[in-house]
């Protein structure tokens, strides 16, 4: 891989069914509108860790088992994601060297608003 290379995952549509399967069982802000409204949210929101899984899948698809034995990921959760939103997951190589590949990684919604962003590191020696 070289600086500027872009990787991505197929778009995912977020549904309440997926959110409930991921964040249930039980009522919480990800599974129950009433619980979400109690804390000032407009309704249920997707759990941020879903997008950590999307990014991790993208990296596993790209770097294979090497991602799964030495990968590092740091992300910040920027915006809420609601049922019906469509999420694109992307990465762009920002540095190759010192035995590592570093990528900017992010998830964006259908309005191209970044909902999760961060950095991933894969050990080049593992490749």
């Amino acid at each position: 891989m070289k600086i500027g290379d872009v990787i991505s995952l197929k778009e995912r549509v977020i549904t309440q069914e997926k959110m409930s399967a991921y964040s249930g069982p039980g009522k919480n802000i990800h599974t129950d509108d009433e619980e979400a409204r109690k804390v000032g949210l407009p309704g249920t929101i997707a759990q941020g860790l879903m997008f950590v899984n999307y990014i991790s899948e993208m990296l596993a698809r790209t770097f294979g088992g090497k991602w799964l034995e030495g990968g590092e990921l740091t992300v910040s959760f920027r915006k809420i994601v609601r049922p019906g939103d469509t999420i694109r997951t992307l990465g762009k190589v920002k540095n190759v060297g010192n035995g590592k590949i570093t990528l900017n990684v992010w998830c964006e919604n259908e309005k191209e608003e970044i909902v999760v962003e961060g950095e991933a590191i894969v050990e080049e020696n593992n490749l």
């Binding site: 034995e69 590092e72 990921l73 992300v75």
Partner: peptide
């Protein structure tokens, strides 16, 4: 409110 997450993977699961 979960605002940031870091992981370091050592082994496959």
């Amino acid at each position: 409110v979960h605002v940031n997450q870091k992981i370091r993977i050592h082994k496959a699961v």
